[in-house]
Design a protein around this nucleic acid. Structure first.
Lengths: 243, 243
DNA sequence: ACCTGAACACCGTTCAAGT
DNA sequence: ACCTGAACACCGTTCAAGT
């Protein structure tokens, strides 16, 4: 796993080639997560991959929780959420497209992040970018926080849904078998199930646009939503895709 | 744990008072989840609470996964998402307020549901209600699905954030210590941290209203968003609270 | 300071056995 | 048909010991 030889390049005489350091452990953890999923990311298997005793990890991390949080931290912490777009709307779109992209690039990271009870600090970077963008649009204080809240919760919710494979459970036969949809039937769901290919990118862009258009900015308050028609549907540039 | 004596009341002679049935196990699982959280919900502890061998549970559930999914199923399956409101907007609000409420009433259910790889069938009940409501507003097909998607992802995202205690990690000192917010500083977050009481109910209602107002219904398309000002901010009736 | 091996208290689940 | 106890292959983590 990550056979990078780890040249010990600081102060050549003494430091004793230690087998581990945080960075090395974290990169091994990410590749383990990517290859075998979040359930495989255990202290013992990670240590085995590093050819080290399980207890060696505890010299660099307080606990498994600490390690998992650090993995999440590293993933979102190394991505750039700010951009130079003039339009504050584009800055917000860029930010959340990036957030979605990092996580989709590491599908196991979704369940990992959901399992954390403390969010990693790095998630505050998108928050800062968004609040700054909204401020230039004249939106501050609690209303701005609510818009940020709406954006981030929608994004994380969609990504979570997306990574799980959305309609895996949408088999009408299964739905029929259970008695849960008794009252209202489920004819609309049956109709919906016919969309066999669901365009997540478009759904995501729709969500962003809807939320941005719905933010009570100065602009929106003064001109009585003159550009509603144009900001509601535009799909914009295609979202960032990872290689 | 749930000392209900379980009168065996069907066909009095024969059926042998079996120690367990699905319903009994599930109710014990819910109380265990509520009292000690999702991590405590193990097969062994659940069995111990029921004074039964761990393996006895496997006569009623295929696996732990099956049991956990059934717990989620029971929680959201027993709530009524449809209502008789005339306004389709109110029907949608009612539906998602209910969804939020059930889950908030069992905070451990958030991590539980996030840990499932297959969603329980019962989550399709809100879907059916929403698609039906949107249809009366003239919205069908893929646009309707997108609006549903936006609503449910926002709701689940907010609930998840809400249950975790949102600003637990928003200590500016911690944020300063890490180098992650180097580029842009984090003055906006610092300002935001001053809101020491965050109104989740209001944030949720704002989200619902924004999404509903942003749905491209017949109505919105014909009248050029005449009621935008009034539908964007209204908080509406107070959300459902559980006893 | 960093790593190890043995040990402890837990997991989910298989299996053979009981009724 | 339903339940049990013993056993297996795993966990995270403590601890005493090595260098």
């Amino acid at each position: 796993m990550t056979s990078k030889p780890r040249e010990t390049r600081r102060s050549r005489g003494r430091p004793r080639d230690r087998a581990l350091d945080r960075e090395h452990v974290l990169s091994a953890a990410v590749t383990l997560l990517d290859r075998e999923g979040p359930d495989a990311l255990t202290m013992r298997r990670l240590a085995a991959g590093l050819q080290v005793s399980p207890m060696a990890l505890y010299n660099h991390f307080d606990s498994k929780k600490d390690l998992l949080r650090s993995v999440a931290e590293q993933l979102v912490g190394q991505t750039q959420f700010s951009s130079g777009h003039e339009d504050w709307r584009e800055r917000i779109r860029f930010c959340f497209r990036r957030l979605r992209s990092v996580i989709l690039a590491h599908p196991g990271a979704v369940r990992l992040m959901e399992s954390l009870e403390q969010a990693p600090l790095a998630v505050f970077s998108p928050m800062e970018v968004t609040l700054a963008a909204l401020e230039t649009a004249g939106l501050t204080g609690e209303p701005a926080l609510r818009s940020y809240f709406l954006l981030t919760n929608f994004t994380m919710g969609q990504v979570s849904y997306e990574v799980r494979g959305p309609f895996k459970a949408l088999d009408p036969a299964r739905a029929l078998a259970s008695g849960h949809l008794r009252g209202e039937g489920f004819c609309h769901i049956e109709a919906a199930a016919q969309f066999e290919h669901w365009d997540f990118d478009a759904a995501f862009e729709f969500g962003l646009s809807t939320i941005i258009a719905g933010s009570p900015t100065d602009h929106a308050l003064r001109k009585n939503s003159s550009n509603l028609q144009s900001t509601q549907f535009p799909i914009g540039p295609t979202p960032i895709r990872f290689a």
